[in-house]
């Protein structure tokens, strides 16, 4: 029998939404399950087999000492390690702690803070081990995830564009809400991949796919402020799911709020 690629899916600090994109594939799931051996995916099956794996999909950021050690073990077992989602690629929404006193938050939030052990920062997987590919999004686009696996199986480069959301938005035939309605939209500075989902429904892009290849985040932040969007709103817009991705971080910090 032909050898099937073994896939492991690993969770770090996250909401599970990206792993769920795999299960959410529905129509394609049967074909996927037939084409690969999903050897380790606790969310799907309690039959968890040990490595090595040809492809490791890692969701979530590193926020504890245990996880900081565990990611090294996983790296050793995976021929190709792919970070999936904003948490794994940029630290996620939980990276907002990176601008504050984590211990103080722990004391405020938990009845028994003495039981909580956590790192002061939430960091992406690439901050700890070399990563072969980063798939963006909060959550990732399930078709991009499928494309990534299909490309790995075919031995080709995945077709994951890095240009702006605007390109997808225009190809889709949307009327630009930034220009026609004055809506604050992060699309020009955000990487494509979602199919311009939010602008299609008349919402400004939230930047959940992180910075586009041309890191124009700072220019966009300044532009939005010049157009009358309050600067604290602009800072918050860049400081969400991908707050710690460098161009977004720069855009927000440049506005004088740290």
């Amino acid at each position: 029998m032909k050898h099937k690629h073994r896939i492991g899916v690993f969770k770090f600090a996250s909401c599970d939404g990206c792993q769920l994109s795999l299960l959410d594939l529905e129509d394609e799931l049967v074909a996927l399950a037939g084409a690969v051996d999903i050897a380790f995916f606790p969310e799907m099956s309690s039959n968890m087999r040990s490595g090595p794996y040809e492809i490791g999909l890692v969701e979530g950021s590193v926020t504890t000492h245990q996880d900081a050690a565990r990611i090294h073990q996983i790296r050793k077992q995976c021929q190709n390690l792919v970070a999936i989602g904003a948490c794994a690629t940029a630290g996620g929404i939980q990276a907002l702690r990176n601008w504050s006193d984590t211990q103080q938050w722990v004391n405020q939030v938990y009845a028994h803070p003495e039981y909580i052990q956590t790192l002061s920062m939430s960091t992406p997987i690439s901050g700890h081990v070399p990563v072969d590919f980063e798939l963006r999004g909060c959550p990732v686009n399930k078709y991009q995830l499928l494309e990534l696996v299909s490309a790995a199986l075919a031995g080709r480069k995945p077709n994951i564009p890095t240009y702006s959301v605007c390109v997808e938005c225009k190809r889709r035939g949307n009327i630009c809400i930034a220009v026609a309605e004055g809506v604050g939209c992060l699309g020009p500075a955000t990487q494509a991949g979602c199919g311009a989902l939010c602008p299609t429904y008349s919402r400004g892009c939230y930047g959940c796919f992180g910075p586009a290849e041309s890191a124009s985040s700072t220019i966009l932040a300044e532009l939005l402020i010049a157009q009358g969007h309050p600067s604290d709103e602009v800072v918050r817009a860049f400081r969400s799911y991908n707050a710690c991705a460098w161009p977004f971080r720069q855009a927000a910090e440049g506005k004088g709020l740290t």
Partner: peptide
Amino acid sequence: SDVTGDHAERWRKWDSCFAL
């Protein structure tokens, strides 16, 4: 190409000289 490798498609899309 899809996950089975048995089905492939070629698409043409607008490109832009502003893309890397």
